[in-house]
Design a protein around this nucleic acid. Structure first.
Lengths: 358, 358
DNA sequence: TTGTATGCGTTATCAT
DNA sequence: ATGATAACGCATACAA
């Protein structure tokens, strides 16, 4: 064992905690404890160990080895069903991610971003090959079979936000239908009768335009369906136009469609997201309509829309960050062995300046 | 035998590849190869192994153990210096992340999202404790000392995007100064002489408002400084106002400041980001100014601004996604032992409809 | 408070 | 094409 410091520095083999312990003249377990802090260590001993570590250029325990030993990697996978650029253009998702990362950070875990791969590349990282302790599925619209299968097979704790993965998977839910109905009732209370609806995508294909009965049959996105059902409780015959995503520009397109014909023009538009609502407002302004005098517009989400200064959107404020946080906490609980439970959040109606009586 | 809760729940410990091998009547190495595909295996043998795996509910090699053995976790850390909600409201960063995740996916690696923690919590996941193979620092403005120190100590490959981490760290750069100067020359070519500048934050404190000489001395964000220098090559005496971030609403605020006084009102405003430019346009419209007839506005980035329909921003289009991709590829190279090299990208000037002659 | 001994579950040799 | 063996680097139960 004549490994001089010189050799250690020259050879490419990195120092291990055993080397440090040897150099410090203590046992490996003592050295381990110095770094993990999981047991008291005499100051003098600690100093010797730390000095040895510094001397050897030892930067602390190898996380890979520690993971194996502990059976935990400290990493939670977040599976998105979309491309990043799509997912992260949605302020609601970002807020959720924020809450989630916060909650997980408190837990000592990091977030591994994953996409529900289409098996295209064999070498892409998947839940199957990633050292994760748990999985959070976001916007899981039934298409995430691969992800779910793997998760099941590996018996990983899993939580679903904004989606349905079967009854045995705990989910973070929202009272989408009730909140949508509340908005609709607000509008009816203001005297509106001819109302237009702008929906989020109905299904993965994200078709734009009028929603016929046939198209409605293809609806697979639960959020869209629930919010639509809520609005229709009040306005069953409203004209429905779907957007290709939750973006202002999509709202503009849908808004133009709804507002094009002055004869059939609605007096109020309910959009399924604030961004869509912002777009509808812009479309209205393009046409010279004033909001809310000529057209009432309501959204959904309660996010701060960058660039909508001047208006306060009437909307259902959802606790997006809380949802993420709840997911993180659910994961934390499951990690300690408890059973995961679904949680249902409630939106808060906010009357803004974009709706008024007819 | 004491009946601990854990034993009660776990009837059997999870099957390992050794169990599978035994059940299948092959050696562990053969079983391993069946799953890794790293060597030819007779069909019959493979089938036996797979059958055994299915029988035992074995879902494939434990990634933690595989990481240790291979010395690779397949995870690359991306360190942001901001809160997610802040970082991901910037379309440029999202595009970068997209390119990065793409490049890393091709490499078989996933992205672990990390924030440059303020050491607040001891159990927060840091680069020090996360099993990562490499690190990408985004928007590293000198504040990331902790991250860098750890990275150095652990000898992890590292790349910096939009920031400076010292000469020994490869970086992905942009010709910010030249591109800004080009925009400025474009405006001067159009006859503009009184020009206003809206900058990104000067430093971490994100103060808004007029930039005095003193405040300029506090500038630490390199991107801001470079772009400002470029503009000032052409308009050394321009009034400069800083924004608190790259958001439309911030642009509105800065725009109001610059445009408030009709007597000193500039004929053109150069914003250091497209979002800021969009805000300036909105501020101008608020004041009844037409763009570009009454005011020319130029941005920077070349992103698609959601909600700016109708205008095409004059801007410097930067290859954001390419930057991310390049970072991913640089990491890939370093992972194979090559030395990382800095890469400099070039912006492309785009003349839009928001600038016109005086 | 410190040391001893064991395995966590794999996979890379190398031999057969 | 398959098998035996030896690490990979660490953290813990338990003993001292």
């Amino acid at each position: 064992m004549s490994t001089s410091p010189e050799q250690d520095r020259e050879t490419h083999r990195r120092a291990t905690i055993a080397d440090v312990a040897r150099t410090a003249g203590v046992s490996p377990s003592t050295a381990s404890v110095v770094f993990s802090g999981k047991a008291p260590v005499a100051d003098a001993t600690r100093d010797r160990v730390l000095a040895a570590a510094a001397e050897l250029g030892y930067a602390g325990p190898d996380p890979r080895a520690a993971s194996l030993r502990r059976g935990r990697s400290g990493i939670v996978a977040v599976v998105l069903e979309e491309h990043l650029r799509t997912a992260f253009r949605d302020p609601v998702k970002i807020a959720m991610m924020d809450g989630l990362t916060d909650a997980l950070a408190a837990l000592g875990a990091g977030v591994l971003l994953l996409r529900d791969e289409s098996e295209a590349t064999d070498d892409a990282p998947t839940i199957a090959t990633a050292p994760v302790d748990a999985v959070v599925l976001i916007g899981c619209s039934g298409r995430m079979r691969t992800a779910l299968d793997v998760v099941r097979a590996r018996a990983l704790p899993v939580v679903v936000i904004e989606g349905d993965a079967g009854d045995d998977v705990p989910r973070i839910e929202l009272d989408n239908r009730e909140a949508a109905a509340q908005i609709a009732r607000h509008l009816r209370g203001l005297g509106h009768e001819r109302v237009g609806i702008v929906t989020l995508p109905l299904s993965a294909d994200r078709t734009r335009g009028d929603v016929t009965a046939e198209r409605l049959a293809t609806l697979t996105v639960e959020v869209t369906g629930e919010r639509l059902a809520g609005t229709r409780e009040v306005f069953p015959d409203a004209r429905v136009v779907s957007a290709a995503g939750s973006f202002i520009d999509e709202g503009v397109i849908a808004g133009r469609t709804l507002l094009a014909d002055p004869a059939t023009r609605p007096t109020a538009v309910v959009a399924q997201s604030d961004l869509l609502a912002a777009g509808v407002i812009r479309a209205a302004e393009e046409l010279g309509l004033r909001v809310p005098e000529d057209l009432s517009v309501a959204g959904f989400d309660g996010i701060r829309v960058d660039g909508l200064a001047g208006h306060v959107l009437t909307t259902a404020v959802q606790p997006a960050e809380e949802k993420g946080r709840a997911a993180g906490e659910a994961v934390a609980r499951m990690l300690t062995g408890e059973r995961g439970a679904s949680i249902r959040f409630t939106c808060v109606f906010r009357e803004g300046t974009t709706t008024a009586s007819v």
